[in-house]
């Protein structure tokens, strides 16, 4: 039976997106599942099914377990910082003031600038010898010269640096989403709270924040997924070091599978991300649905 022309047009319009997703997301995902139960290496031609061997080997590796824990720390702490700061920024940017447009532009800058450039900038700022941050700290007499902190060289500091840089990068995105949520609350409602006797804090925590919950959930959902699957900041700043203290699952998968040429084990590591992300996504969507108001 011939399709109606409007249906055909619909299919034609939809096809590019579908093909794009299938080729760039779907195919690699299938390959990753396939590789994770095989014995594929860079340059090898054959494929042997090995069952869950790769997963067993990965789970036995202390580096993997460390990376898994790091991934959670990296994601959770980053998102906590981002959500608190994004709330503050959204509040500050809601009301009109002179230069608001410029400040909004500055806030957006980390998001629109290429992350590699941003991260390299931070690498310089945190460099062990040329660090601007240390120069400032020394001149403020907060640390002694020649004894300045090695931002990327000490495990705890390195993790903190990676988290802060990633938070810096994610902040604009969450701020914009939260700002949209904040401005969508009718002005009458906080005003009613003010007349009813609520001060700033009560009005914010009892009225504004609960009304923003669905939109905050959206911001957190995207933030968690972007953070959990990201390796750019780690790769550029620390390469997972020192001693794998900043290694996260995506960077470990890359180092093992691509740089270490063990495609199968790399695939197994990255497949670990799938159930975790699926659970997060389902959870957040459910919360968002439940909290829907108005």
């Amino acid at each position: 039976m011939a399709l109606r022309s409007s249906t055909r047009l619909g299919v034609a319009m939809f096809a590019p997106a579908l093909i794009y997703i299938a080729a760039v997301v779907g195919l690699p995902l299938c390959l990753a599942f396939l590789y994770s139960v095989g014995d594929v290496r860079v340059g090898s031609v054959g494929y042997h099914f090995v069952g869950l061997d790769n997963f067993r080997s990965v789970l036995r590796s202390p580096t993997f377990r460390r990376s898994l824990a790091n991934s959670f720390v990296f994601t959770i702490v980053t998102q906590l910082i981002v959500i608190v700061c994004a709330n503050l920024l959204a509040l500050a940017l809601r009301d009109r003031f002179r230069g608001r447009g410029f400040v909004r532009f500055l806030v957006l800058l980390p998001w629109v600038a290429p992350i590699s450039l941003g991260a390299i900038g931070w690498k310089w700022l945190l460099d062990s010898i040329y660090s601007v941050v240390n120069w400032v700290l020394v001149h403020l007499h907060l640390v002694r010269p020649f004894d300045a902190p090695m931002w990327l060289g000490e495990p705890r500091l390195a993790m903190a640096s990676v988290i802060l840089v990633h938070a810096w990068r994610m902040l604009p995105f969450s701020t914009v989403i939260l700002l949209a949520g904040l401005t969508s609350i009718p002005k009458d409602i906080p005003e009613a709270a003010a007349v009813d006797g609520a001060g700033f804090w009560r009005s914010y925590f009892r009225i504004v924040l609960p009304m923003m919950t669905p939109i905050i959930n959206v911001a957190v959902l995207f933030g968690v997924i972007f953070t959990f699957t990201d390796m750019t900041v780690v790769y550029i700043l620390t390469r997972g070091g020192p001693y794998d203290s900043t290694q996260v699952l995506p960077s470990l998968a890359f180092f093992t599978g691509i740089l270490g040429s063990d495609l199968s084990e790399g695939a197994a590591i990255s497949v670990f991300l799938v159930p975790i992300l699926a659970v997060i996504a389902i959870l957040m969507l459910r919360v968002a649905q439940k909290a829907e108001v108005v």
Partner: peptide, 25 residues
């Protein structure tokens, strides 16, 4: 006390909690 044109009820709170709000505040 004020009644707004839109009523400005707190959408996420029940009627009881809406009425309680000024008392708590």
């Amino acid at each position: 006390a004020m009644v707004f044109q839109s009523y400005a009820l707190y959408p996420h709170l029940t009627v009881r909690k809406n009425i309680l709000f000024p008392l708590q505040a």
